[in-house]
Nucleic acid binder design. Structure first.
Lengths: 135, 135
DNA sequence: GCAGATCGTTGGCGTCGCCAACGGTTCTGT
DNA sequence: ACAGAACCGTTGGCGACGCCAACGATCTGC
């Protein structure tokens, strides 16, 4: 059952994140900013498949930690342009490293080719169900 | 990323459950009761990998719906013996059917052999990380 | 008999995902 | 030009899930 592995995966990932003082939402926002550049909050919501209200909370927290900057968009006064800072990039790298080690731990019992197969299969599932290509 | 598929899986499963008027906790408890027979709540918690406090809530709800019965254990007055009822077994069958169709939908893009491979790989992961063999 | 473990229960915390409503802004059709 | 639709950020709320702390009652080992 996929749900079963999901549980373990979740647990491991959560561990890695909390160890780095962050949450899944933070990582997603930072990763989206790094990959696609500055964006409005609504745009971030679409990229991260997150609700607008959750984006507000995440961006606020990231802003308080200095990982992100909010600035009014002069071209459209409805929007806030969110930009990742230098510190934000560094934090993202930390989280990426944490995720890597977590992934190693999770996939420990699998050989390299098995991992490849698994990733391919899961990729197929995600793509078929309209998944966004996030890391 | 496993987390990605986890999200979709979760969503699908949740859909199927709420459509049947149940939650994941309910299913797990019913399945454990059907598979291993009546048990105390603490025992259920171990089987389902759930917290005792969550077992309390789940059993209470299942009891209100008539899917389960609480009875004092005469041999140990601390324990409540939880027993699945006829209606509970039927409900479990409904949930199983719902899960099956959900799984079909989720695994739609995969061939039969691919599904087999995926299940095998995930099984390896679960087993390695001390997973309990649930369904 | 007494200390420690176990059981059910209550209450709380945090993450994740979602929805409704608002006031402000921009875009659209006419 | 102007009304209505659509969009944006924000606030507040809800439910599912996972976990922890504490309590009183009960059972166990020594």
């Amino acid at each position: 059952m996929i749900s079963q592995t999901a549980v373990h995966s979740r647990r491991f990932v959560a561990e890695g994140f909390t160890a780095a003082g962050a949450r899944g939402y933070h990582y997603r926002v930072l990763a989206a900013l790094e990959e696609f550049g500055p964006a409005s909050q609504a745009e971030l919501g679409r990229r991260c498949r997150m609700d607008r209200s959750d984006i507000v909370a995440a961006v606020t927290e990231l802003e308080q930690k200095g990982f992100v900057e909010r600035s009014a968009d002069p071209a459209d006064r409805r929007r806030n342009t969110v930009t990742i800072t230098r510190a934000g990039t560094q934090q993202l790298q930390r989280l990426d490293r944490a995720l890597d080690s977590v992934q190693d731990e999770l996939l420990a019992p699998l050989s390299a080719t098995e991992r490849q197969t698994l990733v391919a299969l899961l990729g197929k599932l995600i793509e078929h169900h309209g998944g966004a290509p996030t890391s």
